[in-house]
């Protein structure tokens, strides 16, 4: 219980910290600074597993709604839940579940039960399906609802962020692999 609460709280804070960091620059994106907040969501899914990742994201959103300026660019408070990007916030818990669940499905337990292998490609694929496909589904629908635009127009508005998010999925896969190597009992 204590372990779960502490990890959930730490990951919620980690998602926040990754968003507040301006200087994470992924070199091959042409030096375009990419906020790492969705990287935090993907990592939560990969490392905590679906349910604890869900809790971490919910804690993050609760704290955000209470007024902590934890979104990239120091945004926070209830205002962010009224803006056109609210769909992405709603999609975050789902993205965390899908990423974690898919990764656990693909990574498998070899030999020791409960011990997942942190393979690179399953991590990337799970991050893409959860952190991009599932997330953008909610994000685009949310934007279409809030702005009364058609789904096609809303999709057009967010298309520019997809390449950066694919890079983040690759980075998430790499980091999860490295982290699991450094702490072999991490993905219990």
């Amino acid at each position: 219980m204590e372990r779960t609460v502490a990890r959930v709280a730490l990951f919620a804070a980690l998602i926040a910290a990754l968003g507040l960091i301006p200087q994470i620059v992924i070199p091959f994106a042409g030096g375009v600074p990419i906020t790492a907040q969705t990287l935090g969501i993907m990592l939560a899914g990969l490392i905590l597993g679906p349910w604890r990742a869900l809790l971490a994201v919910l804690v993050f959103l609760a704290v955000l709604a209470m007024g902590a300026p934890l979104l990239a660019g120091g945004r926070g408070g209830l205002g962010v839940f009224a803006g056109p990007t609210v769909g992405f916030l709603i999609g975050w818990p789902v993205a965390a579940i899908v990423t974690g669940w898919l990764f656990r499905m693909m990574a498998g337990t070899q030999g020791r039960p409960g011990r997942f292998q942190a393979k690179f490609w399953p991590g990337v694929i799970a991050s893409i399906v959860g952190g991009i496909l599932a997330l953008y589904l909610f994000g685009v629908v949310g934007m279409a609802v809030v702005t009364d635009l058609s789904l096609a127009a809303a999709t057009l508005a967010v298309l520019i962020f997809i390449p950066g998010d694919v890079l983040k999925a690759v980075v998430a896969g790499l980091i999860a692999q490295q982290a699991a190597r450094a702490r072999p009992d991490l993905l219990e």
Binding site: V5, I24, I26, A36, I47, L174, I175, A179
Partner: peptide
């Protein structure tokens, strides 16, 4: 060289170690 994503792994590990410490303190 510029600070890049490579720093995220040790950052993450240090955070997870803190989580274990916090869990012990809670317990």
């Amino acid at each position: 060289r510029r600070v890049g994503w490579r720093l995220v792994t040790p950052f993450l590990l240090s955070a997870l170690d803190d989580a274990d410490g916090a869990a012990n303190a809670l317990a």
